[in-house]
Design a protein around this nucleic acid. Sequence first.
DNA 1: TTACGTGCAAATAATTTGCAGTCCC
DNA 2: GGGACTGCAAATTATTTGCACGTAA
Lengths: 157, 157
Amino acid sequence: MSDTASLRPAARRPGRPSDALAGCLVHDLRGKLRQAGLRPTRQRVALGWLLFGKGHRHVTAERLYEEAGSARVPVSLATVYNTLHQFTEAGLLREIAVDGAKTYFDTNLSAHHHFLEDGGDTLVDIPAGQIELGRLPEPPPGMVIERVDVVVRLRRA
Amino acid sequence: MSDTASLRPAARRPGRPSDALAGCLVHDLRGKLRQAGLRPTRQRVALGWLLFGKGHRHVTAERLYEEAGSARVPVSLATVYNTLHQFTEAGLLREIAVDGAKTYFDTNLSAHHHFLEDGGDTLVDIPAGQIELGRLPEPPPGMVIERVDVVVRLRRA
DNA sequence: TTACGTGCAAATAATTTGCAGTCCC
DNA sequence: GGGACTGCAAATTATTTGCACGTAA
């Protein structure tokens, strides 16, 4: 049984390009993983599907674990953590630490920033270009700027 | 204002200004705590002393706990956590979450941002004005911007 | 086949909490 | 004296690790 079939068993019908894309996406995903030096195992493909299957998202390990469970793709929490970090190292994800304990992983790799809603629970993208850094400070000697993260904290009006 | 005076007192005498200053600083600190609705207990005054006694700083709970031990002011780690949070709620400190597990507390309340050195260990202030946010994005409806945090991640060149 | 992955449970790490005893006002 | 504060140790929460077994190439 192929992963494709198990994950997206929809019938092929004209007028719905998503079916064709679905197969394509999984195929791409496997290629992506392989290129990153990661063996495309069932779990990695499944988690990759959940992560990259429907637009950009922010997830915590816990959340992805629950989703995997709901999607009838049982993986252990440890594997979710491992996979998320492997994806991050492979440049497929970005790790963002906004507050306190939880670590979020962002599938959006392009330069952009975040809104943090008051409880610290929800993270929302700020479209690139909507925020503008005038000039950056000079880094201390011997250091280079790797990345700039902006978090806009929100409060209910 | 008075903060400036209490934080950066000029030396009044060659020799041992520390006694007079100590009284003054401690006195201010007690007043500060009282104004914030916090009873100026021995531990709070001692921790306040370590925090506010010598210029702005970034500390983790763990670090402050060690310092307190070194300064012959034994407090429990739990009390350090409690105190830091109480100070934060009282507006005496600012909590900054830059990465992963550790939470830093910043005694500098003015608008400013941070450099984060690569390991995520050291946090350095970026003087206000050295960084410039062009324009801020519009917050989602029903929300207002409370604060903007910028973290500039550094890597060894 | 065989090294790489995975699951599980136990180990860490940072932080919080419950409660008996202590100290400030 | 009385209620706020503290210390300790146990509880939580988020995450990591060690190791036997499973599986993709």
